[in-house]
Design a binder for these strands. Structure first.
Lengths: 115, 115
DNA sequence: ATTATATATCGAGATATTGGAATATGTCTA
DNA sequence: TAGACATATTCCAATATCTCGATATATAAT
């Protein structure tokens, strides 16, 4: 207790969260849930300019979230580490807990009023 | 398979990750690990301007990551939901080179999140 | 009431990020 | 080799973000 967290870990976390803090990139990650896809599939799915999608793929790749494989003129991206989905789930659970505690509050109020 | 993830969930994730994608804010979260602290303690710990720290606290509060309590002229902030630490752990685990200990972390996370 | 203290908010400058058009690079095919 | 295709990179404008100093607001103390 009391020791400051290392600058390095802090910066690592920052890089990961920054890579995830864009809905276009989050959508790419969701799209790759079922396996690798070539850029030519990702572009129309995402519906933004080719350069935009390519750039976002590069950001996810450099953040260590995606892996890529080149085959001829195509490039296939895939989730590098499925733990990323646990991370997303953990984020979602922050939302669920909010709702849960909100409904607990509502229940408590109801009891207080009716009971 | 194939259904697009909802825009709302995407935006929720984006907001959470955006709030976490700054090392000053990540450091604040670490500092609050052991319990609530008043702003007057957080400011010197972080070592940035008072307005900067106040603004970052506001961002974490509005993102639903921190809670606050006012007592006289002091304001105390605390972690709203300890699940945030699972989220941080999940991020860290992306970094782990040792697959064995990584999968331990994954197991622990899975239990914590799903169980 | 006046002053000191604690925190939040406003405004500005520096920097970063986003997305798209244009261009570059690399690879296949005829 | 020329041309078509797939992807990455460069350049730029718009927007967002970070930090700070100054100011505002609220509470406590004298």
């Amino acid at each position: 207790m009391g020791d400051k967290i290392s600058r390095g870990l802090l910066r690592f976390r920052e890089r990961v969260f920054k890579a995830l803090s864009d809905s276009t990139r989050l959508e790419i990650i969701e799209y790759l849930k079922d396996g690798e896809r070539c850029v030519c599939e990702i572009i129309p799915y995402i519906g933004k300019a080719q350069s935009t999608t390519s750039k976002n793929l590069g950001i996810l790749f450099r953040a260590g979230i995606l892996d890529k494989r080149e085959d001829g003129k195509k490039t296939f991206y895939r989730i590098k580490n499925p733990e990323i989905f646990l991370l997303l789930k953990a984020a979602d659970s922050l939302n669920l807990k909010d709702l849960a505690s909100a409904s607990e509050t509502v229940d408590a109020l109801r009891k207080a009023i009716e009971g």
